[in-house]
């Protein structure tokens, strides 16, 4: 399971890096999205991967921490998802405004001369 997840994070982040090096702003924003998916999975896996373990303790009964998964990375990943969603939305607005002003979707604001 660790290997699968590690490869998935690697592919997501690698694709993201390739895309943000492309000249079109749409490719850049998709690349940034892929990278944030990669980092979210990475944070999630930092609490150790567990199958079938809940992060919320049950009331009353004696607590055996080894039967639960770590809740902190799950809380962190929620925060990170919200923030990356908001910043991506804002970036989209800036992109569209820039497209309107410059008339091109090239990241430099002008087409490369042939």
């Amino acid at each position: 399971m660790e290997l699968t997840l590690a490869i998935a994070i690697g592919i997501l982040f690698g694709s993201g890096v390739w895309l943000i090096l492309r000249p079109r702003t749409f490719q850049v924003i998709v690349g940034l999205c892929l990278m944030s998916y990669g980092v979210n999975l990475f944070i999630f896996s930092m609490g150790r991967l567990r199958m079938g373990a809940a992060p919320i303790l049950t009331k009353g009964a004696e607590i055996d921490p080894s039967r639960y998964s770590d809740p902190v990375p799950q809380a962190l990943v929620l925060t990170a998802i919200v923030i990356s969603f908001a910043t991506t939305a804002l970036f989209l607005v800036v992109l569209l405004a820039s497209r309107g002003f410059t008339g091109t979707d090239h990241v430099d604001g002008k087409e490369r001369e042939q």
């Binding site: 943000i20 702003t25 850049v28 940034l32 990278m35 944030s36 980092v39 979210n40 990475f42 944070i43 990170a80 923030i83 990356s84 910043t87 991506t88 804002l90 970036f91 800036v94 992109l95 405004a97 820039s98 002003f101 410059t102 990241v107 430099d108 604001g109």
Partner: peptide, 22 residues
Amino acid sequence: RDRLRAGVQYVAYNLLGSTLFL
């Protein structure tokens, strides 16, 4: 025009920085 062009690059650069931070 110039401000928004620079803005796009500024935002992209800092989103990348946030990813590294995480």
